[in-house]
Design a protein around this nucleic acid. Sequence first.
DNA 1: TCCTAAATGTGACCTAGGTCACTGACCTAA
DNA 2: TTAGGTCAGTGACCTAGGTCACATTTAGGA
Lengths: 229, 229
Amino acid sequence: MPQDKFIFDLKHIPIFQGFSESELHSVKSCLREKNFEKGEILFREGECCNRVFIVQTGRVKIFRTSSQGREQTLETLGAGDTCACNPGSSTWSCSATAEAVTPVRVWFLSRDDYIRMVNSNSKVSHSLNVLFAKRLQSFSSLIEEVSLKDVKKRLVKFILDMLDVNSSRRGEENLISLSFTREEIAQRLGAARETIARYLSELKRDKLIDVKPKQIVILNKKGLESLLF
Amino acid sequence: MPQDKFIFDLKHIPIFQGFSESELHSVKSCLREKNFEKGEILFREGECCNRVFIVQTGRVKIFRTSSQGREQTLETLGAGDTCACNPGSSTWSCSATAEAVTPVRVWFLSRDDYIRMVNSNSKVSHSLNVLFAKRLQSFSSLIEEVSLKDVKKRLVKFILDMLDVNSSRRGEENLISLSFTREEIAQRLGAARETIARYLSELKRDKLIDVKPKQIVILNKKGLESLLF
DNA sequence: TCCTAAATGTGACCTAGGTCACTGACCTAA
DNA sequence: TTAGGTCAGTGACCTAGGTCACATTTAGGA
């Protein structure tokens, strides 16, 4: 039954955790679906921010651009992630740009429905706090990394983080299947593409990792970890 | 009447905006006061984060430290500012360190009282949303600046921002009374003390500003603004 | 299967800005 | 008044990492 499936899906979106069936039904009535091609822009920095997005499938990067065209990725959204501004903000202008890195399917909510939802259900407010707090945490780490750590450390940390995310599969504890290009990694770590390529080569030369197309194999996890300090 | 004064003070704290008298009274009953000397630590990165602070007077810097001892300031809190983590967080460990830059007087709230307050009053949740969203906005700008802008641009932006903050006094539109040391500016902008001194000299040489002890005079605002792009 | 475009590796070069090492200017306490 | 501490300015030096240029590999389409 498609109706039930919808509610089933919603139930697994973090921001709707703990919602009752009836609350989910009222959420459902506001949601619309939309698809974006790879490379399409969901919203642009400075625009009026009149929608809330929830990613169903695909990956979205949120980033800022310098006047010389360099990009810094602030966060990468995957399935279940929500991109929402503060409902009470007077300005409502987007502080960054969002681009589909792969084909993307999202649910979205108009600004008015969003405000209505927040006001009518205090659980939403609570969920938003959790969402914002997590984002703050990750922004704070990003600031520290970009400002205080060198690119090699950032890259090693990135690899180890990816390993944690990927380590679900048994028997492949040391394998990362990489869905990011070097360019994407560079933008996320605030570095140049070439620098990332260079350090990957260096780590390979030092027998800490092995680099294959779309894959990284960890050869010496302890060795990598020791580079973080 | 000191009692009334207390409530009067609370009414002007952004996080308690829109609270009724009785709500403020219940807030009041949880708050305790504490003083910190200049240089004292309010809390340290990694510690269990078991208090919420509201600054009454003085200035507090929130920062992270690299393994080599360099600091990056994340934010500077002044009178009325609140420093609170997400009440629902499972971990509750501070992601940064807070230090009194001047003598500081704060109100604080225990973790338990904080959670109780958030649960019993949905306005608090809403205030937290606003607080977090503002912080996200400023973190996001900080990431962009540190990662994509050179130090000179960051410094010019800092000067112009200070000018906005200070421009309340008539007849002194072009004067900034500086309560930050070069070191503090450097930490906030993610640069070295010497680099800040050098660029200040450069701006002075180029007749854009004049630098006096504890003061900066803007000589050519348009000229400064044109350096931002 | 081949062909083109995108993704990657690497060498050469250059510069922003960090670090070190001084000097001088204040300020406060004895 | 002086001595010690903090703050600020500046020169010398060095290096992480950005940019440019090019060769090479990989991956989808037709």
